[in-house]
């Protein structure tokens, strides 16, 4: 199973003031807060840790169906600037992050390795509903091109827990899928 999350760093600076009193303590464990406060780029570190938590949470929800909001229970360990481990209760996920000047795109997976399809891209549309649609269209376009399947045979639907599922000619496709958008960027990952 796979999860992904993209953070537009400029949008994050507009949306959230992580220096707000009591804010960091709601999201991050003491160890994570120490990483942030000692980092040369605290803003980037906040959103990198956040994106790996989000990506891991998406895998956890696919595996368990359990939704909750308590980011401190998602414990990050940083293995390298782009690799991490996230523990959620008794489950551990591997993460990798692509970090650019403009965005951070993190992928989390339960298996030891992941060589699935992933992409991040700039979105032309601005509102959340259109962006969600644009990410699905981009996924369909990519799969259609890489696997030579006509676009109109491909569909993405979300189930009651909010988990996206790809359908090929109406049949659910076995692979795990994760979609994300934030600010000017969209992304997806498939295992």
């Amino acid at each position: 199973m796979i999860g992904n999350d993209i953070v537009d760093l400029a949008q994050a600076a507009l949306d959230s003031n992580w220096r707000r009193e009591r804010y960091l303590d709601r999201l991050f464990t003491a160890e994570e807060q120490a990483l942030i406060l000692n980092a040369s780029n605290p803003h980037q570190t906040v959103w990198k840790l956040w994106s790996i938590k989000e990506a891991s949470y998406k895998v956890y929800v696919q595996e368990t169906g359990h939704r909750f909001f308590n980011p401190k229970k998602l414990r990050c360990e940083v293995m390298s600037p782009t690799e991490g481990l996230v523990t959620i209760f008794d489950r551990v996920y591997n993460t990798t992050s692509e970090i650019t000047e403009h965005f951070i795109h993190s992928i989390a997976f339960a298996e030891a390795e992941n060589d699935g399809l992933k992409a991040s891209f700039k979105l032309k549309v601005k509102d959340a509903v259109s962006q969600s649609m644009a990410v699905r269209m981009e996924l369909i376009r990519t799969i259609s091109e890489t696997q030579s399947i006509p676009k109109n045979h491909l569909q993405v639907q979300t189930n009651a827990t909010g988990i996206p599922q790809l359908y090929i000619e109406g049949k659910p496709y076995a692979q795990s899928l994760s979609l994300s958008h934030h600010g000017a960027y969209g992304a997806f990952a498939m295992s």
Partner: peptide, 17 residues
């Protein structure tokens, strides 16, 4: 808050505060 209003989960913390 999340599935209907599409509140970004990092902003859910702001809602709580």
């Amino acid at each position: 808050f999340i599935s209907d209003l599409k509140i970004n989960s990092a902003n859910l913390v702001d809602v709580i505060l």
